[in-house]
Design a binder for these strands. Structure first.
Lengths: 190, 190
DNA sequence: GTGATTGCCTAAAGGCTTTAGGCAAATCAG
DNA sequence: CTGATTTGCCTAAAGCCTTTAGGCAATCAC
């Protein structure tokens, strides 16, 4: 029996790719086994169960996204940084819808904890870094973190769901104007 | 064999309640059959399949939500209307998390179409009604519809996922301030 | 009442998850 | 290089969910 060379990390990677192809919710231990041309039970040596697999995929995605966000923010501040951060999220979600969906699989926190939570913290810190350009005190800064997170995540979710497909202007046109509006808002936050 | 009195509508209702109890994704034809103390196959006379059931639940929820929104907006305008609308969504989601999740089950559109789409249109119209208080032209109005939808839906999603639970201030305190910020923003939309 | 309809049932096949236990391939000790 | 150990993938099997097909009985129309 030739060995395929499975491992937790490879399964997480392949699972992430599969998620982008068929949707995060459709990622199943069985489908992944088929992909490797291997018996289903074989995967259970590398992954505790279906939830564990999904948590690993979520962690891969959340970490990738944090890496890209950090790279995009390097050397930017203010409005510029806000657009860069927002675009990274939106572009990532459009390029990798399954992975993006995985990042919101919060059950991952209770299953894997450590790495997932760490990646989550990196995201928070990046948002706060952007907000440093706007001179907000507490609790305004936390409110602003929540506003940005909500709007960016909400827009991406609705766009991916097709909610903006049947009307003008295109989703791509509204986006920068909405981010600009947020910039203006932050600049004059009471 | 005593008849329980099943019907498409009763299944949708019971399914909605079940969704609030165990989560929309966990609503299953089997679970619903258990709830009625009936054989699984019996439900398939009233519901085409699992997707059809979920689409019916989604339609129930989206319609309920539109009803409540319409009632809340009666006699209000401007900032007042904005808060009322936003609160209806958030309160509904907190009271009925499963139903709220169902409203975002966009596959429903392709399965049931008609009623679901009609309810969706009612929501759009309600948002535009609120925006009438802000004097926006096109494409600003569409941008604003998307901004409101994104922020409100995003906030609710993140709050329900527990993203705001581990920091101060409470999710309930940030909410009105964020809606107020949106009001300010709309008032000065370029 | 009788006949037609409709509601719920039994049966069965197919898919996903998960556990238990086994053989063989890779790896390591000496 | 050989033998021992670990590790990877396998077969088998049980449990739950979905969906279809076909049947009997309760209910309704007249």
């Amino acid at each position: 029996m030739a060995r395929v060379g499975l491992s937790g990390a490879r399964l997480a990677l392949a699972g992430a790719e599969l998620a982008d192809e068929v949707g995060f919710e459709q990622v199943t231990v069985s489908a992944l086994a088929r992909h490797f041309g291997v018996q289903v039970a074989s995967l259970y040596s590398h992954v505790r169960n279906s939830d564990d697999l999904k948590a690993r995929i979520a962690t891969v995605a959340l970490t990738e996204l944090a890496d890209q966000a950090a790279a995009a923010l390097a050397g930017r501040a203010g409005r510029d940084a806000l657009h860069a951060l927002a675009d990274v999220y939106r572009d990532y979600a459009r390029a990798h819808p399954g992975r993006y969906a995985a990042t919101r699989h919060t059950a991952a926190a209770s299953v894997l904890g450590e790495q997932y939570v760490a990646a989550g913290r990196r995201h928070s810190e990046l948002v706060r870094a952007v907000l440093r350009g706007y001179d907000l005190g507490e609790p305004a800064q936390t409110d602003a973190v929540r506003l940005l997170g909500s709007t960016i995540h909400g827009y991406i979710t609705l766009e991916l769901a097709g909610s903006f497909s049947h009307s003008e202007p295109s989703a791509g046109e509204s986006w920068p104007r909405i981010i600009d509006a947020l910039d203006t808002l932050l600049r004059s936050w009471s």
